[in-house]
Amino acid sequence: MAPLGDLEPRLKDLMLAGLAGDNAAHTKLLRELAAALRRYYARRLGGGAADVEDLVQDTLIAVHTRRGTYQSDMPFTAWAYAIAHYKLVDLYRRQGRRPTVPLESAGALFAPDDHEAWTAAGDLDHVLATLEPKAAAVIRHTHIEGLSTKETAALTGQSESAVKVGVHRGLKKLIARFGGRSDHADR
């Protein structure tokens, strides 16, 4: 959500310039919004390209034709997010799905794409959960958090050699379980 800090004043300036009749500022704003909307809707709709692009265009037209409802007394990002969220709920309603989309902060529309990192972290948790908690903990410390064997030993109250053995055996188990080629075939 960090980028919202400098994004807000920049986009607000573009919007106010556009409201005053500045073509270039308005076009630039719509371009930036298109990119943010594409990411936002792709995350929510699971990347169905045609759906996402239709919704992006529908939302851009709404932003354009209803831009008079923006006033400088409020953050631009909150206004844009409310429209993006409304258009998503409206799509769900038209598709006959229950329109339950949690209302988030405006940052959700302008968040960088963290989808892949998020699922990878989820997968890793699943994989580690198949090990004994002790072995999972030492692998997490040494191979994910980047601690040394010594630091891990101090943290878990084991000897350094016990940590080394634990990591080695744990990784071996994981390789046996998830590394084999035969395993991939039936997944």
Binding site: L19, H26, G68, Q71
Partner: peptide
């Protein structure tokens, strides 16, 4: 219509909008 063309078209028809439209 590609989104870029849509943006070009919307951007070319900008007119100043009066303040306080909602009220």
């Amino acid at each position: 219509m590609p989104t870029d063309n849509l943006i070009e078209r919307l951007g070319s028809e900008v007119r100043a909008v009066p303040r306080g439209l909602a009220a």
